[in-house]
Design a binder for these strands. Sequence first.
DNA 1: TTGAAAGCGCTAACAG
DNA 2: CTGTTAGCGCTTTCAA
Lengths: 325, 325
Amino acid sequence: MAAGVSTATVSRALSGRRRVAPEIRERVQAAAQQLDYLPNGGAKNLRRRVSSVWGLVLSDVENSFFTSVVRGIEEGARAAGYSVILCNTDGDVRREAEYLELLIEERIAGVVIAPVSSELCDVSPLRKRNIPVVAMDRQLRTGEVDTVVVDNRGGARAATWELLDTGALRVGCITGPEDASTAVERLDGYRLALAEAGIGFDPDLVRFADFRQRGGYEAACQLLDRRSVPHALFVTNNLMTVGALEALADRGLAVPDAVALASFDDLYWTTLVRPRLTAVAQPMYELGRTAADLLAERISGYEGPGRLRTLDTVLHVRDSSRRPM
Amino acid sequence: MAAGVSTATVSRALSGRRRVAPEIRERVQAAAQQLDYLPNGGAKNLRRRVSSVWGLVLSDVENSFFTSVVRGIEEGARAAGYSVILCNTDGDVRREAEYLELLIEERIAGVVIAPVSSELCDVSPLRKRNIPVVAMDRQLRTGEVDTVVVDNRGGARAATWELLDTGALRVGCITGPEDASTAVERLDGYRLALAEAGIGFDPDLVRFADFRQRGGYEAACQLLDRRSVPHALFVTNNLMTVGALEALADRGLAVPDAVALASFDDLYWTTLVRPRLTAVAQPMYELGRTAADLLAERISGYEGPGRLRTLDTVLHVRDSSRRPM
DNA sequence: TTGAAAGCGCTAACAG
DNA sequence: CTGTTAGCGCTTTCAA
C-alpha cells in the first residue's frame, strides 16, 4: 500500500476496531485522504456477513401520513448507524413479496414494514433467515413480530363519540380495506361508541374503501345518496377524507351544518381547511422512530418474544364536527 | 451443489445470462426453490463491479412536494431494475456531504440529488469516481450535470401577474434561501412581472425564508406588520404558504379581501382550503420520473454533455388571488 | 502490534 | 454446454 503497510493494517487503522500504533494510523489516514480512498462497503459486508442497510416497505409513499413516519425511521436508522432503502408497494401484495425477496438478496440487516394486508403479508422468508422484522401501522396476522401501532380503536371511539355528542343519530363510517388491521380496528372503535351510546349498528352505514382519495369519494357518494342521508361521517384516513369532502361539496352539503365530519390523521393542512377538521392525530414521527428503535434492538441481539407497542392518539375537536343541534 | 452441478452452472442457470441446457436449468431452479436459495446481491455486485441501488438525496422528506417526486423516482428506478436508498439531509449541508460519502462506500450505481444549496453542494467526489449524478428541483453551481427543474421563473411570473392583475400594487414576496436556485428563480420571475407591469421593485417587500412553515410564518409577520401592509403576497412554496396563512389569520386579515395570495406548489389539499388557493402547479411526479430516466441513461453508458430538462408549470387561478377591486 | 494467507459468495475467463 | 480456477475488496485468524 501507499503507506508502506499491509492491507490488513490499513483495515485495522481505518476501521479503528483494533489497536494500531498511533504513528502508523496517522500515516494510513493521511494516505487514504490523499488518494481519497473510501472502503468498499459491499466487500466489507460480504466478509463480515452483516449489512448496514435496512429495508422500509410501505404501501403508499405519497400518503402524507407515511411521510412523517419515514422521517422517524430514517432518523432512528441513522442514529443506529444504518441507512434505509425505500420500497413502495403501491398497495400491491405481489410487489410487496417481490420487494421482500429483493431485500433478502441484498442481505439487508432488518426490515420495517407497513404491510399492505394484515392477512396476506408473508414475512416468513425473512424470519427463516433470521432477518429481524418490525411491523408498523398495521399488524401482521402472524404474531411473533415486533409491532408498533396506534390506539386505533380508542381514537375511532373518541371521534365517533364526538359526532354522537353533537346530536347525530345516523353516523356513517368510511373505513379502509377489510384486510388492513387499521381499518378493522377503527371500525371497531366506531361500533364500540355506537354501542355505548345505545345506538344500533347499521351495516348499511359502513363502507369499506381503499384508504385513497378516489375510494373515499365513491364511498361518500354512496352514503350521501341514500334515502336517509347520514347526519355525520367518520372517515378513517386523511386521503379518504379529502374524497369525502369533495363528495359533500358536489352535493352542496355544508359541513358541519348538513353533515358533520370527523376523520383520522391530523396533518399540517387540517386547520387550513374550512371548516377546520375534527381529527384524530396519530404520533406519526414517533411511530416511525419507535419502529426503528425496536428494529435496532433486535439487530443488536435482543431475543425476547414479539413486542407490541401501542401509541396513543389524540382527538382534536374543531369545527367540522360541531353540528348545531 | 444439491443439483449435482458446479457453482458456475448454478450461476448461469439462475441469472439466465448464458446458455444452459434446459434440463439442467430446470433442475437447478427446482433445487434453488427447494432450499429457498436467493443469491447474495452484495457478492454479485462485488464481483461484477456494479450495483443495483441508487441514492436519493433530499433536503426534506416531510415536504409533500418531495413525496410525489420520490414516487416518480422510485418508479423510474424500478423500471430500470434498481432500488433506491433514501437520504434525508434535513437541509444540512454537512449531513449531505456525509451521505454522499456513504453512498460512495456503498458503490452506488448513481445518485439523484435535490441539493440543499446550489452553491455549497459538492458532487465532485461522485464525479471523480464516475458515479452518474442527476440534480433535481434545484440546480448545481457546477454545471456539467444532468439536471431536471421546472420553469420557476415562468411560474412565478404568472403568479405575480395574476396578483397584479387583480389590482394589487404592493405585492410582497416570500422566497426561499438565497443559495437555492429555486428561490432565486422564483424571485426573478416576481421581479420580471413587476417590471413588465411598470412597477418599481422594492427590496423591503421581499423576504428570504427557509422554505419551511415557521420561516414562512415569520416572514409573513414582518411583511404584514409594515406600516403599509402589502395588497398581496406571493409565497414561493407550500410550507411557507401554510405559515403565511397562519400569520394572516392571526391578524384577522381576510384572504383575498384584505390581502390576496398566490403560491407555489399545488397539492391535493389546496382546493380544500378556504379560500381555495391560487397556486403554481409543478409536475412533481414527472420531475422525479424524468430524473430517474436521465440517470438510467447515464448508467447505461450515455456520454453526452450535461443535459437540462425544464418542465412546465401551470398556474391554477382560484379564490385566494381574486381581490375585489 | 503487524504481516501473510484464507475466504465471504459470486461471476468471468479459459479449458475441456 | 459445463467445470475449474481465479479474484472482486475486505476482515480475520494465525503466526511471527
